[in-house]
Amino acid sequence: MRGYPARRRCVISQAIGESAQTIVAVHQLAKTFRVGFWARPVAALRQVTFEMRRGESLGYLGPNGSGKTTSIKCMLGLIAPSAGQVALFGRPPSDPLARARVGFLAESPYFYDYLTPNEVLDYVAKLYGIDGPTRRKRSRALLGQVGLDHAAHRPLRGFSKGMLQRVGIAQSLIADPELLVWDEPLSGLDPVGRNEVRELMGELRRQGKSLFFSSHVLSDIESLCDAVCILDQGVAVAQGKLTDLLRADALESVAHLGLPDDGGAALLALQAVPLSHWEPLADGQRVVLPTAQVAELCRVAVQAGATLRELNPRRDSLEQLFLRKAVTRRQDSVGSPA
């Protein structure tokens, strides 16, 4: 990721999965469902392109119905895309060897309700060809890790949504996968549970796992991810490192100026720069200006004898970024309907 400008990263090479570091490559993915008697087409995905590097923690972000779950199902081969390709570890999702390295948690997971968490994990572990003693050892450890050891021998029938979510998380980890694909892992959990899962995610990252998870809770993404992909109405509208994205889109900067003793003259000089906001501070002046004007501000400030104490790009919140991306795209598409 380092050294690449954010926008360049959105361009995916045609040869998918070419790089050893790229573990997920989604290229121009589209999916149209046919609904109802007349098989009316519903475009769930139109243009989804993104890449994920090894060790990265990528947040998949988008409003309800933007196509997160649909694209995740395409990534795991549950749905065949109408167009475009997906590569997991350089292989198509239909290849079991690729899927063997992925741990998947479905949105609101559901399992055989006549099984106990132990039995679910045992069943799932068999599908990976894990031997008996290891199956038992890992089941016990994982159920402890997700806080379900007290319910390990109870059938899932009576489980709450949050408990099922924990079973889902445990089963996704059974084969020690390199990549975790979790669809809304934090939904359905109480505050304590959310915190536990957040900590688990941090721990998994420290172990070097790659994390791909969807959410529409922006603060979770901000605190857990180093990269994001934003989806809106079936289109990936932005992708990149969170810090780069937020900074690259910072259109304004904030400067903190120290004024000389005769502050009045300096202030007058500063009026020449088109500032969008200014406010006096105890020891100077705080100004907000378009980033393009920063050079001009510096020049004027030096001439007027003011000192530049601090200069920062005004960091968008993820929320602002998201809203701007989504709204801009919608306005664009009104101009030129697809």
Partner: peptide, 25 residues
């Protein structure tokens, strides 16, 4: 060949025996 993960879990996903285990599961 079986595949060993980073933390030493051995996965046997290819070959007829592994397929048999999956189907019997």
């Amino acid at each position: 060949a079986p595949h060993t993960t980073a933390s030493g879990v051995v996965l046997r996903t290819s070959g007829p025996l592994a397929a048999l285990l999956r189907m019997s599961a």
